[in-house]
Design a protein around this nucleic acid. Sequence first.
RNA 1: GGAGUGGUGGCUGAGUUGGCUGAAGGCGCACGAUUGGAAAUCGUGUUUACGUUAAUAGCGUAACGGGAGUUCGAAUCUCCCCCACUCCGCCA
Length: 421
Amino acid sequence: MLDLRVLRDNFQTIANALKKRGKETGIEEVLSLDEKKRDLLQKVEELKARRNKVSKEIPVMRKNGEDVQEIMAEMKEVGLKIKEYDDELREVDDQLHTRLMSIPNRPDSSVPAGTDDSDNQFVRDYLKPTEFDFEPKPHWELGDNLGWFDPEMAARVTGTRFMFYRGMGARLERIVMNFMLNTHSERNGYTEVIPPYIANEKSMTGTGQLPKFAEDMYKLEGLDYYLIPTAEVPVTNMYREQILDASELPMRFCAGTPCFRAEAGSAGRDTRGLIRQHQFNKVELVKLSHPDNSYDELELLLKDAESILRLLEIPYRVVLLCGGDLGFSSAKTYDIEVWMPSYGRYVEISSCSNFEDFQARRANIRFRDEDGKPKFVHTLNGSGLAVGRTVAAIVENYQQQDGRIKTPDVLIPYIGRDYLE
RNA sequence: GGAGUGGUGGCUGAGUUGGCUGAAGGCGCACGAUUGGAAAUCGUGUUUACGUUAAUAGCGUAACGGGAGUUCGAAUCUCCCCCACUCCGCCA
């Protein structure tokens, strides 16, 4: 959520910044609703001030034996008027709030303009795309041959876009997740947490999934509960409506959780393999940072996420998202894209973002600054990494001509063998 | 799931025959006095959001778990919901 006062005072600046996203945002409407609201507010507050004043006088008048019948009758009228204005005010305020909530974050000045992922900016890469002296197979074929992945079984048990992992496939998924969590908590300095996999509406609103993206999530019937689409939701909301101490910042957490996404509107895309599932595992990195150094923290977070692929020795590249490709809540996002031989291109495996105070304002996460005043923290997060996609990348990049998968060196201690089969 | 008790400021803790309580007292914290310096002591100050404004000055409005109601007026009365604790039941 944007700061309404800032929006009001620097309307043109913000309007221009939002143009980088290349979509209509509707901030003009917010501005006029705000004017209407302030007008009403002034009227009610005047009436309330009068009521408060007279209500204080009544017992005094009574004591002096004066007649208060008339004035009480008048105040009853005032009371009704106040209720009327208050109702109208609440309606306008609700509208204003709804509109404001659906305005995306303002892109940082370093974000390039552009409409889609073709305008994203190359940042760096690691290793060159894997070369094979045979025809490489996609991971779903390899996994099928090895008996690791069974989508038909999952379709019978649940439905399409769910996966059954079996045997070494299941072990690989679990071991990769352990490897990521161990790396982040021991080497990169994050505190591991296991959050609830279900979150309430307030939390979903806090991080920006609601109210706009309800159709992307699974909601529990008859309850105010949603399956989490990412650990970002419960972890960022750990300190919702709290005031932290400045000395506690930055806070760094990592969490490995299943993620549940309805994926409305993605029918027909990436239908095979582990790339796009309704349920998948992901290790998430979350930071609560002091506003002054959140962009340094973003660079560090990105490096921490990259460290996983470097340790696994899998080719990837980093791109800076352009305005049009930027997520709703984010001010700046880097994507890490892993080399996927079956696609013949890089595929997103992590998204690292600084949300500045956009989520913190929604979720009301503050800290007490040097000057004693509570201020909003900056929130950041990034995948470190998507586990299923990492497994797919390992299978494809480490495949041998005979269909076996070579174990990445860094995973040998976890699994105790040179080949996965 | 059933029964009971309770939810007040950074913490602790008053206030529940409605009005003079944004909220006593204590602790903590900040500044000042005192001191060679410190402790102790004394004094002053110390919630947040919104509106108004050049202003983080003043003024106004709101907030005592959340919401609705009664009333000229509610932390105090009524109703609904949420949360915490204790006991019982159930379970991993």
